[in-house]
Simulated assay, not measured.
Amino acid sequence: MTLKRLLLDERKEGEAVGEARGEARGIVKGKIETLFGLVQDGLLSLAEAARRAGLSENEFLKAAHGDNDNNV
């Protein structure tokens, strides 16, 4: 296998990993936005929304307000 082919394969693998990470982050962000909307509408308590997201209430609020986009 040539160096050019190896580099191309590594680039494609890196792109696939980046795409999967982006998709996962989008799913988590969408879930948090949905839960936060339910909290704002008074249909779900903050504690329950945080529990469903697997976060503390403080972490949930930070994520809902976009304070830690790199960690969501």
Rank of each mutant, 00 (worst) to 15 (best):
G66Q: 07
G66N: 09
L38W: 03
A63R: 07
M1V: 11
E57V: 13
G66I: 13
K62M: 09
N70S: 13
G14C: 08
G37R: 12
E48V: 11
I27G: 00
A49V: 04
G66C: 11
K29M: 06
A64N: 05
V28P: 03
R5W: 02
A53W: 00
G54W: 10
K62S: 04
T2W: 00
G22H: 07
A64K: 06
F60V: 07
F36P: 02
L44Q: 04
L3G: 07
G26A: 05
L6A: 14
V39R: 07
E57F: 01
L3V: 12
G54L: 08
G22L: 11
A47T: 14
A47I: 06
A64V: 09
E13M: 14
L61F: 04
E13P: 03
E10Y: 08
T2L: 06
L3D: 06
V28I: 13
L44F: 10
E33H: 10
G22N: 11
N68V: 15
K4H: 11
E19H: 06
R52A: 05
R52V: 09
R21S: 03
A20C: 01
L35S: 05
L3E: 11
G37N: 09
I32D: 01
I32K: 09
K62P: 00
R5G: 03
N70M: 08
L43C: 00
E48T: 13
D9Y: 04
E33K: 15
R21D: 06
K31Y: 00
L46H: 05
R51T: 10
T34V: 05
F60G: 08
V17C: 00
R21L: 14
S56V: 07
N68S: 14
R51V: 04
A20N: 07
D9S: 11
K29G: 00
R5Q: 14
N70P: 03
I27Q: 06
G18I: 08
Q40C: 02
S45N: 08
L43G: 02
N71H: 05
G14A: 15
L35M: 08
D41W: 03
A16S: 13
G30V: 15
K4V: 07
I32A: 05
L35E: 05
N68K: 10
K31G: 07
G66E: 11
E15P: 06
D69R: 12
E10F: 04
N58S: 12
R52S: 04
R21H: 06
R25E: 13
R52W: 00
L3I: 11
E10P: 02
A47K: 14
A24V: 12
R51Y: 03
G30S: 05
K62Q: 09
K29H: 04
D9C: 02
D41N: 05
L7V: 13
L61H: 02
F60Y: 09
R52Q: 15
N71W: 14
I27T: 07
A24I: 08
G26Q: 02
A20H: 01
R21W: 03
G42K: 09
R52Y: 01
T2E: 01
F60K: 09
N71F: 12
D9I: 12
D41K: 08
L3A: 06
K12T: 11
A50P: 09
F60I: 09
L6K: 15
S45A: 05
A64L: 04
L44D: 01
R52G: 01
L61S: 03
L3F: 04
